[in-house]
């Protein structure tokens, strides 16, 4: 595998990892506000909303750190990919049902339309899938540079 592939993987990992660390951090600032955002999707029962709202910020921060630092990068990328797929499905489902939702993706301040949020999340999903595939097909740094 060539150096430029490793460079693309590194740049994408820093970008995706940094994005998820930031997203998790903003959610951790207002767990109640994030629980309200999750509730607005009307998907989960009341008993699951708070445990999930409390778990997603550390999940995003840890996944972001794995991808950013490079230790267990593939697992972190897979976690980000699965999370983005779930977020896209949730926003898409809310749009189909005509719900007025605040995704809470980067804290409570978000005036984006759901369609724009869906497009943004789909773009991140595509990037994370591509980066994961690149990580699977790209050997470790030392071997790639030899």
């Amino acid at each position: 595998m060539k150096l430029h592939n490793w460079l693309i993987l590194w740049v994408m990992s820093v970008a995706l990892g940094g994005l998820f660390i930031y997203a998790g951090w903003t959610k951790s600032l207002g767990p109640q506000a994030f629980a309200d955002s999750i509730a607005s999707f009307k998907i989960l029962p009341a008993e699951l909303i708070v445990p999930i709202a409390l778990s997603i910020p550390p999940f995003e921060i840890l996944a972001g750190l794995l991808v950013f630092v490079g230790w267990q990068r593939r697992a972190g990328l897979l976690a980000i990919t699965l999370a983005m797929a779930v977020y896209c499905l949730a926003i898409g489902s809310a749009m189909v049902r005509g719900l007025d939702v605040n995704c809470g993706c980067f804290g409570p301040v978000s005036n984006l339309r759901p369609g724009v949020e869906l497009l943004r999340d789909l773009l991140i999903l595509v990037c994370s899938v591509a980066t994961y595939v690149l990580a699977v097909t790209t050997p470790g740094r030392i071997r790639s540079l030899q």
């Binding site: 409390l54 778990s55 550390p58 999940f59 840890l62 794995l66 697992a75 699965l82």
Partner: peptide
């Protein structure tokens, strides 16, 4: 499998 471990660790950490 590692991702599932991450899910459980995050759940415990969040609570």
């Amino acid at each position: 499998v590692n991702t599932l471990v991450l899910v459980f660790v995050s759940f415990a950490l969040g609570l």
